[in-house]
Design a protein around this nucleic acid. Sequence first.
DNA 1: CCCCTGACTAGAA
DNA 2: TTTCTAGCCAGGG
Length: 92
Amino acid sequence: MTVFQERVADVLERLAPGEVVTYGEVAAEAGYPGAGRAVGRLLAASHGEYPWWRVVAAGGRLVPGAEREQARRLRAEGIRVEGSRVGTMARR
DNA sequence: CCCCTGACTAGAA
DNA sequence: TTTCTAGCCAGGG
C-alpha cells in the first residue's frame, strides 16, 4: 500500500452519507492536488471497498459507465440527481 | 529511464 | 452540448 493510496482511502472512508465530493477534491484533501485522475484509477480498481458513488466528476457529473447505479444510490441518501449530474448546478 | 493508460480537469473548438 | 487538446498523477511494462 502506497502513501498515496492510504491517504486517499482515508479521505474516502470519512465520506458521510449524503456527502458528495469530486475526484479533484478527494485528491487535494488527501494532499495530492491535481491527482484526481489517480484517484479515479484507484476507485476503479477497488471493487466496493469505498463509497465510490459519493465521488463524482467536476461539475457534478456522474461516473461514466455506472450512472444509473450511482444515481440510485445517491437518491437513496437524499441527494438530488438530474440526468447524469447531481445537485442544482448549471452546466460547466 | 521511457512509454502508455486511466471512473480527472479546464479551456478551446 | 459534445469533442479535442494539453496538463496532471500514480502504476505497470
